[in-house]
Design a protein around this nucleic acid. Structure first.
Lengths: 230, 230
DNA sequence: TATTATTGTAACAAAATGAGACAATAATTA
DNA sequence: TAATTATTGTCTCATTTTGTTACAATAATA
């Protein structure tokens, strides 16, 4: 870890970082060094740091993206969520002094945030304890440690819920996009197929889109319009 | 305070306790002893205690009700939310040793829960630092300390949002109730008037109600049916 | 110039909601 | 005992929203 750290004890955050590759909704999962343990990127909050800043900085470090869209989705406060055995394994495999890091073995209340980012802009970076950080489609996740699977479920539930109310598309798509791309985002998030004509009519009626020039993709059919959010 | 307390440091909870008196949606607000400071009931979490248990116990103590319906609505993590001056005032007026209670002056991350309770069953009890605890209609709240007004706003927003998805009526009404009472709950929560016929049709179509006997109120008009949730 | 695979929109059907009308009915009053 | 009153339960029709199908427009390619 860096310089002097004065973390709030027994408190952490975990982040579900969503990206959209054009077809699938994916999240970033990291694998701890030599443990076979997969987890969500997370961290701790400094005594003199805003909670949201801590999360934002953590997500910045994992993604390389500066401008992060965050939504808090739930706080996990059960006693049973801690897993000292797994923590011990992580410390061991990283050759960390268990005395010094004994605070990591305790009970944590963890605040869950999800981030929406433009998949193309990301260059994932593992954290200090991890070997790798990779994109996984939300329906092909590895087994996650502790209650991180429940976290993903909850994050997804809240994301689905926010789909209409908070411009989810803005953050998962490039600035300009076709109606088909937008529909694919909705389908990936909701996990269901949508009717093309109904979707288009609905989106246009909401009066949240601006229509731009056409996108000629060199395909042998009519070119779609590009849109952006108002 | 009771026995030995081993609280998680810099972490608290606050509760927005909703009740419905037949007309208005109200919440419980306490006033700290000799300070003129009004606040939401809150507390701290023991190191070996589930977050939700801590909140539930706190709400039990304030209301005298054992069976508490809780929903987490947001976690407040900003640095600026602490108000050392107000805390100092509360400690002073309660003749508490500032050395011993210095931990209360620090920065807190606070998890917000709302509770839904049957107004009639409550016997509000002030906490150790407070003179009074009283019901206030949500649109006639006194000025609240720290960010507690924002908390109420957020709690109400989430409650409104959950209105259709989570059986809000169950917890704010007696077991059996008339359609009019149910409508009044909806109107109080949403803060808008609803059309009687449309509301009735909608509720009946949802297939979540059981119709019971009629309620004869001794009024010179048709008696309404009583309902309960399935 | 015909073919192909989309895209944009129109058209109609079905479902949900808005708005009003009205008969049924518990007391009370004439 | 019969009219009166205020409210309740339900029906009807208008309006809006959504589901479904159809079809013309259009970029490339053959």
């Amino acid at each position: 870890m860096e310089e002097k750290q004065d973390f709030i004890q027994n408190l952490s955050y975990d982040s579900v970082i969503f990206g959209f590759n054009g077809t699938q909704l994916k999240i970033l999962i990291l694998e701890y060094h030599n443990t076979g343990l997969f987890a969500l990127p997370g961290g701790f909050v400094q005594m003199d740091e805003n909670l949201e800043d801590a999360v934002k900085n953590g997500v910045r470090q994992r993604t390389g993206i500066q401008d992060i869209y965050l939504e808090q989705f739930y706080t996990f406060g059960g006693l049973k969520r801690s897993d000292p055995a797994a923590m011990d394994k992580i410390l061991t495999q990283n050759n960390l002094d268990k005395e010094q890091y004994s605070w990591m073995m305790g009970r944590f209340i963890s605040i869950g945030y999800y981030a929406l980012i433009n998949y193309e802009d990301v260059t994932p970076k593992p954290d200090e304890l991890s070997d790798s950080i990779n994109w996984y489609p939300i329906d092909e996740l590895p087994k996650l440690m502790m209650d991180h699977e429940e976290m993903v479920e909850r994050a997804l539930r809240v994301l689905r819920h926010n789909l209409d109310r908070k411009l989810v598309g803005t953050n998962l798509l490039p600035h300009k996009f076709t109606m088909k791309q937008l529909q694919q985002v909705y389908e990936a998030v909701l996990g269901v197929g949508l009717r093309r004509t109904t979707f288009q009519r609905k989106m246009l009626s909401l009066d949240i889109l601006v229509r731009h020039e056409k996108l000629f993709q060199g395909k042998a059919h009519k070119a779609p319009y590009l849109y952006s959010f108002k």
